[in-house]
Design a protein around this nucleic acid. Structure first.
Length: 693
DNA sequence: TAGCCTCGAGTTCA
DNA sequence: CTCGAGGCTA
């Protein structure tokens, strides 16, 4: 989006963006039914703001950038805030935060700068509300509305248990107590819904066949704006206080928080005093690391100049106070444009369309590509080249196009069609009846061969160190290898003339190759790349083959294995548990293909030797199924799997009610949540080590 | 035959 | 991690 734009184009884009944002404002603020995420909405708004900055002549008073919030609903009594409820400026990264500090420093005296300190607190993703206490009793509460006029929701706020109906005063000094008892106190904070309450609420909604809430924030907003307080009461809302509008003697923002606590408000325990901006940045980092684990959603850290006098002096610019800023976390969604759609060819010959994107930052990384999986997915999304799309990176690392913003189309977008010919070798592309995927029809397609070599040397196969895709490409290019067996015939003399291959690295690679010549049977079978035979089925086949062996020796010749597999009939193979007609036929065909037999003979000739799998040491874990999630400290995941197998246990890739134990390492993924939900026994690394000892 | 469970295969970025 | 599809089971 950072491209140079003509004025005409900019004007059109601004108008389109405005319409789109207004539409989403209405959905969000009035109907409580957003169609896109806050983060995606934010990027649209930022694009508009940037364009308007570049072309100020196109700013109109009704532009969404010219107002703070949405209009209050008609249904509630309107309340005018005595002191406006401002919004905050945003800092998207460290630079913007530092810029902010520079800006405020310019407005302060040297003595003030010297003592400039901050208070940092979590920015709850909920909705801001204000509470008025008369003579210490909760009197009236309202939403922020547009910042000046909000909606009175006193009855609903009373249902929130963390909002005190009467202020506690026993810890206050005499003067403050008098002030509260004989006057009005205004407190502000954030009403929100915990992740857990949100999930439960959506379960309920599902059962009642009612619309689901998009996120906890909207669930909270929807709940608090119920005309019937009974409904609000049934929704588990919570409240953190963050501001005392009335002067209760607080000199700093930190003191304000201490007083709030004394008044019996819930104060976020993570909030922290920071003596300089560096500490603020550290705090932000620390919080972003625990963000996922917090029981509620936050979208950043609010940084406030701690000293109230200085805060006041800094004043207000537009509708935001200068002395506060929202230091946001990178959004997990953003909008960008599809520059192109390219097609990749995988190991199996499958054609995968991939969208090439204008680089955009999402969740702290820059994304430039996203898979589109297959033709059906492209049809479902209706993605065209040139479209503006929402990309997300939720929970996991892999970016995904979530949605096309069709309203932003100009008519110049191009539809994508799957190529008729393989983009790598030019052969015909075929699609089997009833399947979604397209395949290159050429069994010897260069792309297939290359991908096969990557697979062959990969960690779970031959595991040849120093030999990655880059070097394989180089070796093919130089004509040094034609098939995987050729790898084992390489000599140091072959490598040394190559670019970037000094004596040492050539030697290292040759050593690694020689070391890899001895390989456990299961990994060998996996390395063959038989369709439908991955890690798990390779293990199964290895076990079956070993059972057929007459002599139990440690070493095994490829020839013997070939013989065993050729003697298996289709029926024999299908009798193996977990192997059915499709997988069985694939294995049978592989071992009866002349080309493959030749390849195996070649591997034998170049010195590949098989190791018979270790015999199980015990049946201690027999019948027990394990699932691993997160990283273990004392071993890799593969080593852990090996241990479990040796003790007769099973490993599965996903959690279900058949799972016996979930081993939870550091930074566990979604499997942890699922296990908790299903009530599966969770064990940590220590307990696991105890088990496999 | 439907529905659950599990495996294979493909994917991105630092 | 996710999705699709193969295999198993009620």
């Amino acid at each position: 989006m950072g491209r140079s734009t003509t004025k005409q184009e900019a004007k059109k884009r601004i108008e389109k963006l405005r319409q789109e944002i207004q539409h989403h404002d209405y959905l969000y603020y009035v109907l409580d039914k957003p169609e896109i995420s806050d983060a995606a909405y934010d990027t649209l708004k930022r694009e508009l703001t940037a364009l308007e900055k570049q072309f100020p002549e196109f700013i109109t008073p009704d532009s969404p950038t010219q107002r703070v919030g949405g209009p209050p609903l008609e249904k509630f009594e309107k309340v005018k805030h005595k002191i406006p409820m401002l919004s905050l400026q945003d800092a998207m990264d460290e630079n913007e935060l530092n810029d902010w500090e520079e800006r405020i420093k310019k407005l302060l005296a040297p003595s003030e700068i010297k003592n400039l300190d901050y208070f940092a607190e979590l920015k709850m993703d909920g909705l801001a509300v204000t509470l008025i206490y008369k003579n210490g009793i909760f009197f009236k509460g309202a939403t922020r509305g547009d910042g000046f006029i909000g909606e009175e929701i006193t009855q609903n706020l009373k249902t929130i248990k963390s909002i005190p109906l009467r202020l506690r005063m026993d810890e206050l000094d005499e003067k403050t107590r008098k002030k509260i008892e004989n006057g009005e106190v205004e407190i502000r904070g954030e009403a929100f819904m915990s992740k857990k309450a949100f999930l439960e609420l959506n379960e309920e909604q599902k059962k009642k066949k009612e619309d689901l809430f998009a996120n906890p924030r909207n669930a909270a907003a929807g709940s608090i704006r119920q005309l019937d307080p009974k409904i609000t009461a049934s929704r588990k809302l919570d409240f953190f206080a963050y501001q005392i509008v009335t002067d209760l003697g607080q000199k700093t923002h930190q003191q304000a928080h201490q007083i709030l606590k004394k008044l019996s408000f819930r104060d976020n325990p993570h909030n922290q005093y920071c003596k300089n901006i560096k500490e603020v940045i550290d705090f932000h980092k620390k919080i972003s690391q625990i963000r996922e684990k917090l029981p509620y959603e936050i979208d950043g850290v609010v940084v406030t100049v701690n000293n109230n006098k200085i805060f006041e002096k800094l004043g207000i610019v537009g509708r935001t106070p200068r002395g506060s800023i929202a230091f946001k976390f990178p959004g997990m969604e953003a909008t960008t444009k599809v520059k192109e759609i390219v097609v990749q060819v995988g190991r199996t010959g499958k054609l995968t369309p991939v969208a090439v994107l204008e680089p955009v930052r999402v969740g702290g990384v820059t994304i430039s590509r996203a898979t589109l999986h297959n033709e059906d997915e492209i049809k479902r999304l209706d993605v065209r080249i040139g479209d503006t799309v929402i990309v997300q990176r939720a929970g996991d690392v892999i970016p995904d196009i979530k949605e096309v913003i069709k309203n932003l189309r100009t008519g110049k977008e191009k539809k994508f069609t799957m190529p008729k010919k393989c983009p790598v070798c030019g052969s015909k592309v075929i699609k089997k009846e009833g399947e979604v995927d397209y395949y290159c029809s050429n069994k010897n397609c260069f792309a297939l061969q290359r991908r096969y070599l990557y697979h062959f040397v990969s960690k779970k196969a031959f595991d040849i160190e120093h030999l990655g895709p880059k070097i394989i490409d180089q070796l093919i290019e130089e004509g040094l290898i034609e098939d995987a067996a050729d790898i084992f015939s390489l000599t140091q003399g072959d490598l040394e003339p190559l670019e970037r291959f000094a004596e040492k690295s050539a030697q290292n690679l040759i050593e690694a190759i020689n070391k890899a010549k001895k390989i456990p049977l299961a990994r060998f079978i996996y390395a063959l790349g038989i369709r439908h035979v991955g890690e798990e089925n390779a293990q199964l086949l290895a076990q079956q083959a070993v059972a057929k062996l007459k002599i139990k020796s440690e070493k095994l010749k490829i020839k013997e294995i070939l013989k065993i597999f050729q003697n298996f009939s289709l029926e024999d193979l299908q009798r193996i548990p977990d192997i059915g007609p499709v997988v069985g036929k694939s294995i049978y065909d592989w071992f009866h293909d002349k080309k493959n037999i030749k390849f195996l003979e070649k591997l034998e000739k170049v010195g590949v030797e098989l190791e018979v799998p270790k015999i199980k040491i015990s049946q201690k874990l027999a019948g027990k199924t394990f699932v691993l999630t997160g990283a273990l400290k004392s071993m890799t995941r593969d080593e852990a799997k090996e241990k479990i197998r040796l003790l007769g246990g099973d490993i599965s890739s996903s959690v279900s009610k058949n799972t016996d134990y979930v081993v939870v390492g550091e930074e566990p993924g979604s499997k942890y949540e699922k296990a908790k939900r299903l009530g599966i026994k969770l064990i940590d690394e220590k307990e696991f080590l105890e088990m496999v000892k």
